[in-house]
Design a protein around this nucleic acid. Structure first.
Lengths: 190, 190
DNA sequence: CTAGAATCGGACCAGCGACTCCACTTGGAA
DNA sequence: TTCCAAGTGGAGTCGCTGGTCCGATTCTAG
């Protein structure tokens, strides 16, 4: 519905917008939200003026990046959920979410906010994500693959937490694997 | 040794220094590292000049706060380790560390850096903490209370991760308890 | 009690980074 | 091809924040 309200962008404008989003994703995720806006413009090969024409605020840009990322992940999760049986789908998605948000404090924070408060545009996509996660959790619990007393908030907290943990072990994949082992084992019923 | 090299502070100066540390701890942990230095001075009831006299840099102040916090935790952990048998000590310390660093991104980051790079003063106290943790882990593993394949880096990553997770569930102690349940269960051998 | 060394405090400075403005360029409809 | 609305870019504005300076204000030794 939002795209319906916008008149179509001129070809070059659309290209620049896309470039900005890509550059912002890259820069924000690798160097943190603290980087000057100008860096992003430079990385995208456009002027700062152009950046602010497309995104009225630095925050708006960040928001756009996060929304896009949330959507991507939700989509993949949905596909996984549809194609795999519940238990496997649940654990695969857990991995997916953690891996996709690895090294990305911003995204982590976005997830965090999913449980607290968000701007309108974020609200929608994070709601979708929550729904998807809830469904997966439900399925896995029904099949007895996950302890019944774990709720959605705990799942989200764990996702964020494991994401943080994994981030620290970026250099050591084997150790990261052990983190998954531990948490997955803990999630299963005794 | 560092206190030996300093001449004793004048009474009021010492008081102000302590106030600054307390205020900084409070403000940093509740509102993030981003708060203006001046706020801290105000919270401590001193002028900015005084703040910078005691801590030449904002970073130095943060460092002092973190060092103090690390020491406190390490001390408590050591006491726990001495007074309790290994398995219980390990899990109690896990809780202790997580709870003490809850809501404190700065401290979390400090712990993070414990695995990466740190300034000289931090290095010392974080090294002590690491040693303490290593000892606890070792004891618990020797007693068979924790999977043998979990190493110190994984433990630290988990501490940070669970800290992050717990932070999100600040409003819901029961849910937080479930996080501990899951992770502790996962840490135990099958 | 008093000198003067140690400390205080807040006006002031400098750099940085988000955002504005507008002269200039360009896509694409006619 | 022409024209102009849409779009561009980057110099400049502005507020904020870390950090300095120095006259005023305590402490405390003697």
């Amino acid at each position: 519905m939002s795209s319906a309200s916008e008149r179509p962008l001129r070809a070059d404008a659309a290209r620049n917008r896309a470039r900005l989003l890509d550059a912002a994703t890259e820069v924000f995720t690798t160097r943190g939200v603290g980087v000057p806006t100008e860096e992003i413009a430079r990385a995208a090969g456009v002027g700062i003026g152009t950046l602010f024409r497309h995104f009225p605020t630095k925050e708006a840009l960040l928001e756009a990046v996060v929304v896009r990322r949330l959507q991507t992940i939700t989509d993949r999760a949905a596909r996984l959920a549809a194609e795999t049986e519940p238990a496997e789908a649940f654990f695969a998605c857990f991995r997916l979410v953690v891996e996709q948000s690895a090294g990305k404090q911003e995204f982590t924070r976005a997830l965090t906010e999913a449980g607290i408060d968000v701007h309108a545009s974020l609200r929608e996509s994070s709601e979708l994500m929550r729904a998807q996660l809830s469904e997966l959790l439900d399925g896995a619990q029904r099949v007895g693959a996950v302890r019944p007393e774990v709720g959605l908030p705990e799942l989200i907290a764990l996702l964020v937490g494991v994401g943080t943990a994994a981030e620290q072990l970026a250099a050591d994949p084997a150790a990261r694997e052990r983190i998954f082992d531990v948490v997955f084992a803990g999630l299963r019923p005794r």
